[in-house]
Amino acid sequence: MVHALSEVHRVLQDNGQLLDLRPRTASAPIHIVSAREHVLAGEAMQAASEHVHTEAADAALTEAGRRGLFVQEHEARFPYFYFWDSPNEMQRYLQEEWEEIFGISEDTWRALRAAWAIADGDASLRMEINLSITRWRKLGSREATVARSALLES
């Protein structure tokens, strides 16, 4: 992670911008949505390994800021939605694409299928993930020198 940030720093010109766009979600609510209603049917839980990645990335970026490589300028969060036409389609996708990222308990699948059985004809399944977008600016050489001096003095 630290090495990757060093590479980003190298290829960016001074005052260039790094955008960090990634999921920040420990759990992802699953709704059955139709034109008539939105019903919470369960949630997917993020794998523990993903928490570790997120924390490592945060630590590396914090350290890069402390060392005067980048300064954070902006952060925002927003929901990102996935839609499936049926529980079977959703389950296949999760198994094939996200097996190591999200898990859904057997109890949740049962509840979700039970809710789906009485859902409206135009219903679909919607999973909500929280995304963050953070803008960092690469400090120019003079600013970086000042930041490093301040770090040494602290």
């Binding site: 990757a4 590479e7 290829v11 766009l21």
Partner: peptide, 20 residues
């Protein structure tokens, strides 16, 4: 990401997309 085949200062913007 740890071995980018580009010269120094090649970009004004880097987007790290779902990769950290």
């Amino acid at each position: 990401a740890t071995g980018l085949p580009f010269q120094r200062s090649s970009f004004e913007v880097v987007i790290y997309s779902w990769s950290f």
